[in-house]
Amino acid sequence: MALFRLARHARALCAGAARRTFVRATLRATLRATASALIGTAALLPTAWAKPITVTDVLGRQVQVESPARRVVLGFHFEEFTAIAGAPAWSRVVGISRTGWAGWRAGNWARYTEVIPGLKDLPDVGFTDDSSFSAEKVIALRPDVLILPEWGWNALGPAAAQLQAAGVPVVVVDYNAQTLERHLASTRLIGSVMGATARAETLARLYQAKVDDVMARIARAPKTAAPKVYVELGRDGAGTIGNSYQGTMWGRMVTTVGGQNLADRHLKSPWGPLNPEVVLAENPDHVLIAGSSWANRPQAVRLGYASDDATARATLRPYAERAGWPGLTAVRRQQVFTIDHGLCRTLTDYTALQFIAKQLYPAQFADVDPAAELRRYHEQFLPVAYGGTWFLSLKP
Results as ranks from 00 to 15, higher is better:
Thr56Lys: 03
Asp57His: 04
Leu59Val: 06
Arg61Asn: 14
Gln62Asn: 14
Val65Gly: 13
Ser67Pro: 09
Pro68Met: 10
Arg70His: 15
Arg71Val: 05
Val73Phe: 01
Phe76Ala: 12
Glu79Trp: 02
Glu80Cys: 05
Ile84Ala: 02
Ile84Leu: 09
Ala85Ile: 00
Gly86Leu: 07
Gly86Phe: 06
Ala87Gly: 00
Ala87Cys: 06
Ala89Glu: 04
Trp90Leu: 00
Ser91Ala: 12
Ser91Lys: 05
Val93Phe: 00
Gly95Cys: 07
Arg98His: 05
Gly103Gln: 04
Ala106Met: 00
Asn108Ala: 09
Trp109Val: 02
Trp109His: 06
Ala110Asn: 14
Arg111Asn: 07
Tyr112Asn: 06
Thr113Ala: 12
Val115Leu: 02
Val115Lys: 08
Pro117Arg: 14
Pro117Cys: 10
Pro117Gln: 15
Lys120Leu: 04
Lys120Asp: 14
Asp121His: 10
Asp121Leu: 05
Pro123Val: 08
Pro123Tyr: 09
Val125Thr: 02
Gly126Trp: 03
Phe127Lys: 03
Asp129Cys: 00
Asp129Ile: 13
Asp130Val: 10
Phe133His: 11
Phe133Met: 02
Ser134Thr: 07
Ser134Ile: 06
Ala135Pro: 01
Glu136Gly: 12
Val138His: 12
Val138Gly: 10
Ile139Lys: 01
Pro143Ser: 00
Asp144Tyr: 12
Val145Leu: 13
Val145Glu: 12
Val145Asn: 13
Leu146Trp: 12
Leu146Thr: 09
Ile147Gly: 03
Leu148Gly: 09
Leu148Thr: 00
Leu148Gln: 13
Pro149Gln: 11
Glu150Arg: 15
Glu150Cys: 06
Asn154Gln: 15
Leu156Thr: 08
Leu156Phe: 08
Pro158Ile: 09
Ala159Cys: 09
Ala159Trp: 01
Ala160Cys: 05
Gln162Asp: 12
Leu163Val: 06
Gln164Arg: 13
Gln164Thr: 13
Gln164Glu: 15
Ala166Arg: 02
Gly167Val: 01
Val168Asp: 07
Pro169Gly: 13
Val171Tyr: 10
Val172Ser: 06
Val173Lys: 05
Tyr175His: 15
Asn176Thr: 14
Ala177Met: 13
Gln178Ser: 13
Arg182His: 12
Leu184Cys: 04
Ser186His: 08
Ser186Lys: 09
